[in-house]
Design a protein around this nucleic acid. Structure first.
Length: 803
DNA sequence: CACGTCACTGTTTTT
DNA sequence: CAGTGACGTG
């Protein structure tokens, strides 16, 4: 059996796979079968007597973990494979923290703050401290803190570290104080950000030898994929787990280290053999993926980097065509060239749209390509960008879930205390925050006992707070008895979110409704698959929350459908993937390399590696394009070809091979904004009557949920089937239920009631369809004949009753 | 308190 | 361009 498995590897792959005598570093050139070695090594370990749960395999993405598990399943069977500990650093260690976190003073139901949460908290703190928000830009402060955590510096350590001097030089001396407060607030909220998951794991193991020992005993063999992208904290944790027995296998390629901005430290891989004394070094140098031409072109590029482990990547595949470079006049022409070339290759060879990928440096570059593809009916799929879980309506729902699971969660509290509107506005919120800070308590504690902490507010406000808190408390009470799906539905209905979302009928609302369906379907799916896996009879909301925080839609497995679409993604998200034909677009100075990364040689080398990664995704053909004029930040910018083009040896590069499309003006000139489609006035073309209500989430996409047949929302493929089923099973919130939820409160003190027709000074004639609130807060929802539905606060509205 | 409007401004990659 | 914050109005 061993023979069978190992027979499928080449000599150097096999040597790397069977070496089990100690620390091992496998330098795996691009396309050299790195994943293959890892999977076979794990299969080999299992056959040599290791129990599945004794093996820990850390990957870079959840997707990589799932795929590897699947491949191992095929070798050793599902039963064994499913028991392996395999996942990202973040997901594996968050699970360990869940069970051990009481040792370091957290509660096991801690929340995981995503980047948006932590940025918003940092922003709040900067405001509270009265710092200048221009000087203390919340995201750069967040980056500083993140970097510190990645280097295992706690807030306390930081304040006496060299970083403080840097901060002083950069004119942001208070970063250390922001960090200090931020850490306090996170603890107060019983929350951890992504970096805390690593930092706290490290501290847990460092301070509690018995706990460390427990996991050292459990994880008898540790494998780390993409080692070049680990940061100091990750490396340190791996060291804590492996320094006793030295059974570690790290796999990676220093030439593909592209996550330095996230704290990844290329020194980890460069210095591996120093960290582990007797480490054995293996090199996989044969590339099985690409043509010789592509491999050589990529080699000639990466040769310009000084810091690297020497290696000689080669290919025995066909020689192949030269890498093609073409400069276009504009970004539109660039898109058209790419589009035309895809069609040309596709008709010449028997291949599908799925054999093509467009790679770019920044997400925003997908736009011009998308426009062109849509115009030319080329099916495509955009990866990355705004993930499903970052959509406003989904985040709102999750915020409710989070607050129920952990009422101290400050960010969740802030998000939903007044969503849907319940008359608790900024004034009340900031009073709560001030009081909470004064007593070093969470917002929830203060809000639920306002009188105890001397929160000053009027009667109405107390009542509203009371209503909100008792609603949340009621769900808390049943959280351990009602299953996640049931409770989730209850919350969506009871919170008023369903009313908020299902009431309206604008196109954007419909998209949101679908997203909520998808979300519920996903939740149901989660509950069911958990049950099938036999992890206990009941699946609770907290189980779901644990997973959801670390999910990306990149991780979702796509079904066959994707094979028929061109893939659009950033180079970063293309890591580990391969395509027959790859187009790398936007190779211009000011984009690639990014101007943010041009200040040091180190950063520049990372950008070069990024291009190396991009080129080595290609199996057969690789195209590089750039544009002279590009529409960016609302204006046309002039750009010159990227300096990296000169790094590629000319013998592998062919310029201007693609023919320019014959006619149209790809010039996006000054004057006519709407290049000849109809002539509606601007304000009619993109009606967004309620836009302001739905804006404002961290990384919103320009075009709201994509719904055209070419470009459905990132999630709809994998959810489509489940969705249909779920819709049947789900009995979506019915009209009657909505009516019930929106039942009017009869109000005696004003002469207006549901059914009245009023005439409003600005909006014209309309029918009152709902009334809520009382006294001076009495609010009417009015369906106007010509102006849609509006909410009017009657004490202000200028109207008269007509009927 | 909620919502609409206006002016300003920042520009990268993601677990 | 598109997101954000400040400000005014009902």
């Amino acid at each position: 059996m061993n023979e069978d498995i190992l027979g499928q590897l080449n000599d150097s792959q096999r040597e790397a796979a069977v070496y089990c005598d100690g620390a091992e570093l496998v330098i795996a050139g691009a396309g050299s079968g790195k994943t293959r070695v890892l999977t076979y090594k794990i299969a080999y370990l299992l056959q040599s007597g290791y129990r599945p749960w004794n093996i820990l395999a850390l990957t870079f993405t959840n997707k990589a973990a799932t795929e590897m598990k699947e491949r191992i399943s095929n070798l050793v069977g599902h039963d064994k494979a499913r028991l392996l500990s395999m996942g990202t650093f973040h997901s594996i260690f968050s699970r360990i923290l869940r069970t051990e976190v009481s040792h370091i003073g957290y509660d096991h139901n801690f929340t995981i703050y995503d980047q948006g949460d932590s940025r918003s908290l940092i922003k709040t703190i900067i405001k509270e401290m009265g710092l200048d928000e221009k000087q203390y830009n919340s995201s750069s402060v967040a980056d500083r803190i993140s970097l510190a955590k990645n280097n295992l510096l706690t807030a306390h350590d930081y304040s006496s570290s060299i970083h403080v001097r840097e901060d002083v030089e950069r004119k942001v001396p208070a970063v250390k104080d922001v960090y200090m407060r931020y850490a306090e607030r996170c603890r107060q909220a019983n929350a951890m950000d992504f970096d805390d998951l690593l930092l706290n794991t490290y501290l847990l193991f460092a301070r509690h030898e018995d706990v460390r020992q427990k996991y050292v005993d459990r994880f008898r063999y540790v494998l780390v994929d993409e080692y070049q992208d680990t940061n100091y904290a990750q490396q340190a944790i791996v060291m804590q787990l492996t320094r006793d027995h030295q059974r570690i296998c790290a796999v990676g390629d220093d030439a593909q280290s592209i996550y330095g901005f996230r704290g990844a430290n290329i020194d980890n891989i460069l210095n591996f053999t120093k960290a582990y004394d007797n480490a054995k070094l293996f090199k996989l140098e044969q590339n099985y993926r690409s043509t010789q031409m592509i491999v050589q072109a990529a080699n000639s590029l990466i040769r310009h980097n000084a810091r690297q482990i020497p290696k000689n990547v080669f290919s025995d595949n066909e020689r192949g065509e030269k890498v093609v470079f073409k400069q276009a006049y504009s970004d539109r022409e660039e898109a058209a060239i790419v589009c035309k070339e895809i069609k040309r290759i596709k008709s010449r060879e028997k291949c599908g749209f799925g054999d093509f990928a467009i790679l770019y440096r920044t997400n925003s570059q997908s736009r011009s390509i998308e426009e062109e593809f849509r115009k030319s009916n080329v099916p495509y799929r955009v990866f990355g960008g705004l993930s499903f879980y970052q959509r406003k309506e989904i985040k709102d729902i999750i915020a409710y879930f989070r607050l129920v699971a952990n009422p101290n969660d400050e960010e969740a509290f802030r998000r939903i205390i007044n969503y849907p509107s319940r008359g608790i506005g900024d004034t009340t919120l900031s009073k709560i925050a001030t009081t909470a800070n004064k007593h070093a308590l969470s917002l929830w504690t203060v809000a639920s006992q306002p009188l105890v902490f001397g929160l000053e507010a009027n009667r109405g406000t107390y009542a509203k707070l009371e209503a909100f808190c008792s609603m949340i408390s009621a769900w808390q009470a049943v959280m351990q008895s009602v299953d996640a799906y049931q409770l989730g539905q209850d919350i969506i209905k009871g919170s008023g979110i369903s009313k908020e979302i299902y009431e309206k009928r604008e196109p954007e609302d419909l998209a949101r409704q679908e997203n909520v369906y998808e979300f519920l379907a996903g939740l149901q799916d989660f509950v069911e698959s958990r049950r099938e896996e036999g992890d206990g009879e009941h699946v609770y909301l907290s189980d779901f929350l644990q997973e959801v925080a670390l999910l990306t839609d990149l991780d979702s497995d796509s079904d066959g459908d994707d094979k028929e679409r061109v893939a659009l993604m950033t180079i970063h998200s293309a890591k580990g993937l391969e395509f027959p034909n790859v187009f790398i677009v936007g190779l211009e100075e000011n984009i690639f390399p990014s101007p943010m990364s041009c200040s040091s040689l180190r950063e520049l080398e990372e950008e070069r590696r990024l291009l190396y990664v991009a080129m080595t995704r290609a199996e057969k053909r690789c195209f590089l394009t750039c544009a002279q004029n590009r529409f960016r930040y609302g204006r046309v910018e002039y750009g010159t070809p990227s300096r990296f083009l000169q790094d590629i040896s000319p013998e592998y590069l062919k310029k201007d091979e693609i023919s320019t499309p014959a006619s149209p003006a790809y010039y996006r000139g000054g004057g006519q904004a709407d290049g000849g489609y109809g002539s509606k006035p601007k304000w009619m073309q993109n009606p967004r009557p309620v836009a302001s209500q739905f804006k404002a989430d961290p990384k919103p996409r320009a075009v709201p949920p994509r719904r055209e047949e070419n470009a459905p929302s990132p999630f709809s493929e994998e959810f489509e089937k489940r969705l249909k089923v779920a819709k049947l099973r789900l009995k979506p919130v019915t009209k009657a239920e909505i009516d019930e939820l929106t039942a009017p409160t009869v109000s005696e003190d004003v002469g207006i009631s549901v059914g009245n027709v009023i005439e409003h000074q600005r909006f014209g004639i309309g029918t009152v369809i709902q009334l809520e609130g009382r006294g001076e807060n009495l609010k009417a929802t009015v369906q106007f004949t010509n102006s849609g539905t509006k909410q009017l606060l009657l004490k202000f509205a200028r109207y008269k009753i007509v009927k």
